Amino acid sequence: MDVFMKGLSKAKEGVVAAAEKTKQGVAEAAGKTKEGVLYVGSKTKEGVVHGVATVAEKTKEQVTNVGGAVVTGVTAVAQKTVEGAGSIAAATGFVKKDQLGKNEEGAPQEGILEDMPVDPDNEAYEMPSEEGYQDYEPEA
């Protein structure tokens, strides 16, 4: 019985440690998101679009440190934060509304985080759909 109880105690310690790591990862992701939003706020009209992409990228980098179902929630929060940063930029006159959601080359930025393969159960990952990809044929 002692062996059984000791095993359960060790398992509990492992769960607590994993929860603490997840909590730490979420806190880091939130900190990076805040950094990115402050970065966007300090940019001029020309830099705002690039700044919004930076927020998304920093958040995406930190999301990889967070495991399990938390990833889905962090990704949703990050996307809403990026959308909010863009709205703030438009409201303050840093950028025109028609410039939001495009990178410096004018290509749409939507789907940055949505296409990231995420499995809350950590069982399997699927690649994003290939609808947006084109076949590449090298020139002879």
Rank of each mutant, 00 (worst) to 15 (best):
P120N: 09
E131S: 03
E83W: 13
V15H: 01
L113N: 01
V37S: 12
P138D: 14
G47M: 06
E28N: 13
K12G: 01
A107M: 03
V37K: 00
T59R: 04
I112R: 13
Y136E: 03
E110F: 03
E20C: 10
K12Q: 04
V26Y: 15
M5F: 00
M5I: 00
V52R: 14
T92Q: 00
V70L: 11
T44N: 02
H50K: 11
D135C: 07
P117E: 03
E123F: 11
I88D: 03
T64D: 10
T44K: 00
F94T: 08
F94Y: 14
L100F: 14
N65R: 11
M1Q: 00
G31R: 09
A76G: 07
E57S: 13
Q99Y: 12
Y133M: 06
V63L: 04
P108Q: 01
K97S: 00
A11K: 02
K6P: 00
P128L: 05
E126N: 15
K6T: 13
V16F: 14
G7V: 12
N103M: 05
K21P: 00
V77S: 01
V49Q: 05
G25D: 13
E130F: 10
N65Y: 14
T22D: 02
E57N: 15
E137P: 03
V95M: 09
S42L: 01
S129V: 11
P128K: 08
S42F: 08
A30M: 03
A53Q: 12
K43W: 11
M127S: 02
K34T: 15
A17Q: 06
T75P: 01
A85R: 11
H50D: 15
E139G: 07
T22Y: 00
V16G: 13
K21E: 01
G67K: 11
P120A: 09
V71R: 08
V77C: 11
E131I: 03
G14T: 05
K43C: 12
K23W: 11
G25R: 03
L8T: 00
K23Q: 14
K97E: 02
T75Y: 08
V40R: 02
E61R: 12
E105T: 12
E139V: 11
M1N: 01
E105R: 15
Q99L: 11
T81Y: 11
E46H: 11
V55W: 06
V52F: 04
Q62I: 15
K12P: 00
N122W: 03
D119S: 03
S87R: 04
G36I: 01
E104M: 14
M116E: 07
K58C: 15
F4C: 07
G51H: 15
A30T: 06
T33F: 00
V52M: 03
Q24H: 12
G41K: 02
A27G: 06
A19C: 03
K12R: 14
E114L: 06
N103I: 07
K97Q: 15
T54Q: 02
D98L: 10
K96H: 02
G68T: 10
A27C: 10
E28K: 15
T22E: 00
V26I: 12
K80P: 01
T72E: 09
P120S: 10
T75H: 07
A140F: 11
V16E: 13
G41A: 04
A53P: 00
Y136A: 04
G36C: 02
T92L: 14
V74C: 05
Q134F: 05
T59N: 01
F4E: 00
E83R: 15
V95H: 15
V3M: 11
P108C: 06
K58H: 06
V3G: 01
Q109E: 05
K58E: 01
A30G: 02
E83P: 12
G41C: 08
Q99W: 07
G31E: 01
S87F: 13
E105P: 03
S129R: 07
E104K: 13
G73F: 02
V63E: 00
G101T: 03
E61V: 07
Q99E: 13
G7Q: 12
T33G: 08
V40Q: 03
T44R: 00
T92E: 05
V95P: 03
E20W: 11
E126F: 13
L113P: 12
G111M: 11
Y125H: 13
G7H: 04
G25Q: 15
L100T: 09
V71S: 12
V82K: 04
Q109H: 07
E57T: 08
G84K: 12
Q24M: 06
L100G: 15
G51T: 09
G101L: 06
Q134L: 01
K97F: 07
H50P: 10
A53M: 01
Q99G: 13
